[in-house]
């Protein structure tokens, strides 16, 4: 992905872009089971667009903890977020990855991701790649010690490098294909199968019962 793509434009102009690499400085956010209520508290969901969500990312955590990584001056402008286990658990709100992306993050590396969060990121073209806990911890430590260091996430080859650090990453083949082929926004491909969809509709009993919704 070109990191020059303005994050606010995501979901519109960039939707067919091939996402093969991402690079920039990184932001280590340490902690397991960070839920989407923390990423974007529910009061910010009172909206009909995603505009402006970036400034509210982790609003309550940042307010309560001035040392929160998203508050730290050395991490402003970061493109790569490095998280731990089960990141993005809880609510399905796409507002959470939208807030992260609109803050400026282009790619996320973590020990593991909650299922719905991962799917939301994929549909937005934000790659979420996983690595063993010790790899993630090591990367977080390196970034903390060298906040300005450029990190490259090679989505295509499932690898992260930064200075003398290099490690393999994991990304399932399906999402990998969607990102690197530029079909992560599946809408067009799905709609194009109208005939096959109509066939399934015709075959499923329940949609055709007289009393169906």
């Amino acid at each position: 992905m070109s990191s020059s793509v303005a994050s606010e434009a995501r979901n519109s102009q960039a939707r067919n872009s091939q996402i093969k690499t991402s690079q920039g400085t990184a932001l280590p956010l340490v902690g397991n089971d960070i839920d989407t209520d923390r990423i974007i508290p529910a009061r910010f969901l009172r909206c009909v667009t995603f505009d402006g969500l970036g400034e509210h990312v982790f609003a309550d955590d940042r307010q309560q903890d001035p040392s929160h990584a998203f508050n730290q001056p050395q991490y402003q402008g970061a493109k790569i977020l490095v998280v731990n286990r089960n990141f993005g658990c809880g609510s399905s709100r796409e507002h959470a990855p939208q807030a992260i992306a609109r803050w400026g993050i282009d790619a996320i590396i973590g020990e593991s991701f909650a299922e719905i969060f991962f799917g939301n990121c994929l549909a937005m073209g934000v790659p979420c790649l996983t690595a063993a806990p010790e790899t993630v911890t090591a990367l977080q430590a390196i970034v903390q010690a060298n906040p300005g260091r450029e990190v490259q996430v090679d989505v295509e080859n499932r690898r992260v490098t930064g200075g003398d650090f290099a490690a393999d990453l994991t990304l399932a083949d399906g999402p990998h294909q969607m990102l690197t082929l530029g079909t992560w926004d599946a809408c067009g491909q799905l709609v194009a199968q109208a005939e096959a969809i109509e066939q399934i509709f015709g075959e499923l009993p329940y949609v055709n019962w007289a009393n169906a919704a």
């Binding site: 969901l45 909206c47 009909v48 667009t49 995603f50 399905s92 709100r93 796409e94 083949d173 399906g174 999402p175 294909q177 969607m178 082929l181 079909t183 599946a186 491909q189 799905l190 199968q193 096959a196 969809i197 399934i200 509709f201 075959e203 499923l204 329940y206 949609v207 919704a213």
Partner: peptide, 28 residues
């Protein structure tokens, strides 16, 4: 029974029989 086909990515295109929506996640 709900598989429409396999997409080039290898993902399944799955038919959704019932779609429920509410005010928070549908406007966008």
């Amino acid at each position: 029974l709900h598989t429409v086909g396999i997409l080039p990515s290898g993902q399944t295109q799955l038919f959704i029989g019932l779609h429920l929506i509410h005010e928070v996640t549908s406007p966008q």
